[in-house]
């Protein structure tokens, strides 16, 4: 028996919004430690890794490890049927071929359940090595989303250059070129407005705007985003989900031919 409850459907809706543009389907691996999903996008350029800890749920029970392959478009249709302040419970029997989403209104007067067929997904699981990154940048998630959106107008790719002084995002194309420089902040009132740079070695890397913009769909989940970079390895874009876990996106850099 598997049962996971969140007192507020908003979080789950936001999580799905953060992954459904990149992934058509995904396997939710459930164990007593929580729920994990790891999947590459269709073109195998990026990887999504979602971790939701069992202690972050309002109720969590998982008697046996369970892998539930879900069509994320179908899951989105179902979650649309939940009000933001509904309690959502995800339930499945052991070895079941369906999963049930139950939504309860705050006053308990409306209870709905939606059963969805599970899929057998033959997805590759990738081992992600522990990496000490040369540069780790923490910045407001809204600011990152804004920069990705703005620079995508000028080029298919953005160059991220990180030094001790700051981080620079650049794009150039037919129209011209664009540069956005962010300096590390000192003495900001609110932690969520801070820009913090931890640098061992400077890095310059090029990434596809299309994917960065897809990652920023997670912005509603977190005030801050963390970018981890080293030469010649994938960028990690991490959004923490308060008290529940995190979503990490890995993006392969563009390389010289």
């Amino acid at each position: 028996m598997f049962e996971a409850r969140l007192n507020n459907a908003t979080t789950l809706k936001k999580i799905l919004d953060a992954i459904k543009d990149l992934l058509n389907e995904g396997t939710f691996d459930c164990s007593d430690s929580g729920i994990q999903l790891q999947a590459m996008d269709n073109s195998h350029v990026s990887l999504v890794s979602l971790t939701l800890r069992s202690d972050g749920f309002d109720k969590f029970r998982c008697d046996r490890n369970l892998s539930m392959g879900m069509n994320l478009g179908s899951m989105a249709k179902i979650l649309k049927c939940a009000n933001n302040d509904d309690t959502v419970t995800i339930k499945a029997q052991d070895n079941a071929d369906t999963v049930t989403f139950m939504f309860e209104s705050q006053n308990q007067e409306k209870v709905s359940d939606y059963e969805m067929k599970l899929m057998n997904l033959d997805q590759e699981h990738l081992g992600i090595p522990e990496t000490d990154y040369s540069c780790v940048v923490r910045m407001p998630a809204m600011e990152f989303a804004r920069i990705c959106r703005d620079l995508a107008q000028f080029s298919e790719s953005v160059v991220i250059c990180c030094t001790k002084e700051g981080v620079k995002f650049s794009a150039s194309g037919d129209v011209g070129s664009a540069n956005v420089k962010l300096a590390q902040t000192f003495n900001v009132d609110k932690e969520e407005e801070a820009i913090v740079i931890e640098m061992q070695e400077p890095v310059v890397l090029t990434f596809a705007c299309r994917y960065l913009n897809a990652f920023t769909k997670a912005t509603p989940l977190s005030n801050q985003v963390q970018l981890s970079m080293s030469a010649d390895v994938p960028l990690v874009v991490e959004y923490r989900i308060a008290e529940l876990g995190h979503i990490r996106y890995y993006l392969a850099p563009k390389i010289e031919d």
Binding site: M40, H44, V45, L47, E124, L126, G127, P234, A252, E256
Partner: peptide, 14 residues
């Protein structure tokens, strides 16, 4: 000229 590499080049298949 830059090309997009695949994420599979960086991680091992479990």
């Amino acid at each position: 000229k830059q090309t997009q590499s695949s994420i599979r080049n960086y991680f091992t298949v479990k």
